[in-house]
Simulated scan of single mutants.
Amino acid sequence: MIRENEHLVDTYLHSLKTTNHSPRTIENYHCDLKKFINWYEKTQTLNLARANTKTIENYQHYLMTGDILYKKAGFFEKIALIFIQILKFRMGRKKYGVLKAGILPNNALAIGSRKRHLSAIKNFFTFLQEIHADKGGKFKVNPVKSKIHVIKLKDADIEHTKMLGAEDWMKLKEACWRTQERLTVNLLYFGGLRLSEITHLKFSDFNEHKRSVTFIRKGGSRHELFLQNFELIYKDVQFMQRKAPSEYLFANKNGLPVTSRTMSNRIMSLLKKANTSDGLSPHSFRKACATNLYRKTKDLLLVRDYLNHSDAKVTQTYIDKALFQREMFLLGTSEKPS
């Protein structure tokens, strides 16, 4: 990756970090952008700012085919390759291959992975448009158009997050008898918090009088959440605060917030300890929170705001419609999440 493009990627990744994206998300963006820019530098002669829709269409084809990309070798690369082939010949190996260099291997991506990959590139170019808006007009156009980025997914192509059901929740409550364990699962189940949000919670974020918690959401915005079962959760917060070595609820030995990966590992250990169903993950709590809140209120917009989604269409995907429809059938109604 040439220095100028590397600097653009580093700047973007730093902005993601400052807007409370998790380390795992940032690493995924890094891998996707590195792959795209390596491809671009090996196939295009124009500056990155000159990328257009045709460029993205070619890259999309590259992601679909799984071909190996070659670049014609330069003079010094040819000398090195000839030297390697002479060594192989003297070692009794058959001489083979052509003088190509800059090999960029690629495995064909499934439709969902391509969608995520193109989404990362689109967000990257949107960021470049914003920071170059007053700098000579570079990156005027985002080459990733909606018709390319929005790939229609068949339901079979989507790996749905499994919801934490009532039976598994009861098992988990019985297994989590330590205060920190109990506080962790309650914040996830009743608050629907993301890993990057729960790891950065501070004791000072809780307001007993308002029965709320105010914290930094994904994207960097500060959000006041009127927490379900606040008394139950706040009781454990107060108990932990008595001997807390740090301002953070979940801190490491240095007093800093634990990473999202550490928190994820802790939660997976708790699920295993409680002998819950296979396929559950930290995100299963968020889906359970959305479904339970909708069952209680029948207000999709309320659930959207509670989970801090930008669009109610996203919130709909979090509601377990199959469970909801089974309940409605037993009650003799046909009401569905709207």
Rank of each mutant, 00 (worst) to 15 (best):
I2W: 08
L8M: 12
Y12W: 09
K17I: 05
H21Q: 13
S22C: 05
S22N: 08
T25V: 10
I26K: 12
I26C: 10
N28S: 15
N28V: 06
Y29M: 02
H30N: 14
K34F: 08
K34M: 11
K35E: 14
F36T: 01
I37E: 07
W39T: 02
E41V: 04
T43M: 11
L46C: 14
A49G: 01
R50S: 13
A51V: 09
N52H: 00
E57A: 11
E57D: 08
Y59R: 03
Q60E: 11
Y62G: 01
I68C: 06
L69F: 05
Y70D: 03
A73T: 00
A73D: 02
G74K: 11
G74D: 15
F75Q: 08
F75W: 03
F75C: 05
F76S: 10
I82C: 06
K94Y: 06
K94V: 10
K95Q: 08
Y96R: 14
Y96W: 04
L99Q: 00
L99Y: 08
P105F: 03
N106K: 13
I111M: 04
I111W: 02
S113P: 10
R116T: 04
R116P: 02
H117N: 06
S119R: 00
I121W: 06
N123K: 13
F124P: 00
H132M: 07
D134A: 10
G137W: 08
G137Y: 06
K138P: 01
K138V: 03
F139I: 10
V141G: 01
V141I: 15
V141C: 01
P143C: 12
K147S: 13
H149F: 08
L153N: 05
W169D: 04
M170G: 00
L172C: 00
C176K: 09
R178S: 11
T179A: 13
Q180D: 15
L187G: 12
Y189E: 05
F190M: 03
F190E: 10
L195I: 13
T199F: 02
T199H: 01
H200L: 10
K202A: 08
N207Y: 03
E208T: 05
E208Y: 09
R211L: 03
S212L: 08
I216E: 12
G219A: 07
R222V: 15
H223K: 13
L232C: 08
L232D: 14
L232S: 13
I233A: 10
Y234F: 15
Y234G: 02
K235S: 14
F239V: 14
M240R: 14
K243Q: 13
S246G: 05
E247G: 05
Y248N: 05
L249D: 09
F250P: 02
N252M: 04
L256A: 14
P257R: 04
T259D: 06
S260T: 15
S260F: 01
R261T: 11
M263N: 03
S264F: 03
I267S: 09
M268G: 00
M268V: 13
S269I: 01
L270R: 09
D278T: 12
G279C: 03
H283C: 07
S284F: 10
C289F: 09
R295L: 12
D305M: 02
L307W: 04
A322L: 06
L323E: 13
E327P: 00
M328H: 06
F329K: 15
L330Q: 07
L330P: 01
L331W: 09
T333I: 04
T333S: 15
K336V: 14
S338P: 04
